[in-house]
Design a protein around this nucleic acid. Structure first.
Lengths: 187, 187
DNA sequence: CCCATAACTAAGCAACTGATTAGTTATAAA
DNA sequence: TTTATAACTAATCAGTTGCTTAGTTATGGG
């Protein structure tokens, strides 16, 4: 009946995701997206509605990508070392093959702030809570810990990783490694 | 000979600083600055050259403001607790009487990234190094520590505070406190 | 009082933003 | 082949950005 799409939505979405991840939401203009995705603005709006809609899809894709790392954590039977591995894997993931970009989720929370409540930030915050629960469950593998300790340590670790996610892009790798090693001394 | 300035440069600069601190560099438009500073754009450009020039002056003012906290750290004869106090004072300072704004310096490094080298980021990074040296000197008050330990701990603490400076604005106060308490368990 | 001079106001500049439009082209069912 | 329809292109929308300019107003030494 009609013409076929000349582009693959999944492909162009991935390109958009990397652009948002590198530059943040506001800094990434629709013209930059056009160029990077290799399609006309009209096509972007036809496929994703608007800039925010495109970004929401990018965050979904990001979560999928990071799932391989969280899966390892979820399946780990090794308390603490599982979380430590997550820290290292995450840092590796955040700067793969290029300049560290931090974490798309925490970058976003940081860019918008918590005051400005949007679909984007609410989604991002709930993802952070999800990671915290994975930490909690991993820590619980050590049956000698009471609930209060588990909560305190989970709180500590989620602040540590969320903070590091943002700051890892501005510090050299050795410094980040020193930080991670020290973080797990007393857990 | 000529007309007198109708505004006080120090006063309007302080207002600009709070605006940049709350919103970041890019998000703060010259129209917002006009409104907040209560003067015409022409006057802003007459006094500070351009937007970047104004921002540089704001960062200078910020450093002056934060000096009262770093002074306490510098004068402290108490290893570790002096630094811990700095953490708490800094968090207090970053969210005084209002929504936490983080740290103007680390916010800036974060917004611009390290790749984009400007007067602003270089200045900000050297300030971070300055704080690290204050940490180092405080840790050194404990004469039993060797140089390697001092460096590792100073590295750990500078990443911790720089990270926390950014993330403190997105986490509730109790969580931040939990993080700080845990940070100093093994120092 | 006069007037050179600097401080002011408001309008405007080109470049960019997210988003839309009118017009053209390719596709596949009839 | 015809034709309805969706996918495409490029121009354009109004609004905003950092910054400048032309024109007006206040000041204080002569």
């Amino acid at each position: 009946m009609a013409r076929k799409k000349q582009y693959n939505e999944a492909e162009v979405l991935e390109k958009a995701m990397f652009l948002f991840w590198s530059n943040g939401y506001e800094t990434t203009s629709t013209r930059m997206l056009e160029k990077e995705m290799g399609i006309n603005q009209f096509s972007i709006y036809a496929s994703f509605g608007n800039k925010e809609g495109l970004f929401v899809e990018c965050v979904k894709l990001y979560k999928q990508k990071i799932k391989s790392i969280t899966d390892i954590l979820e399946e780990s039977k090794n308390p603490i070392t599982g979380i430590k591995q997550y820290f290292y894997d995450f840092i590796e993931f955040s700067g793969k093959n290029e300049i560290p970009k931090g974490c798309l989720i925490t970058n976003t929370i940081n860019e918008f702030g918590t005051a400005k409540e949007t679909v984007i930030t609410n989604d991002a915050i709930s993802f952070t809570q999800h990671i915290r629960s994975l930490f909690y469950n991993n820590l619980k593998l050590d049956v000698t810990k009471d609930i209060e300790t588990l909560n305190k340590q989970a709180d500590y670790l989620i602040v540590a990783i969320a903070s590091l996610a943002v700051s890892s892009k501005i510090f050299p790798k050795e410094l980040v490694n020193t930080y991670i090693e020290h973080t797990f001394i007393n857990i």
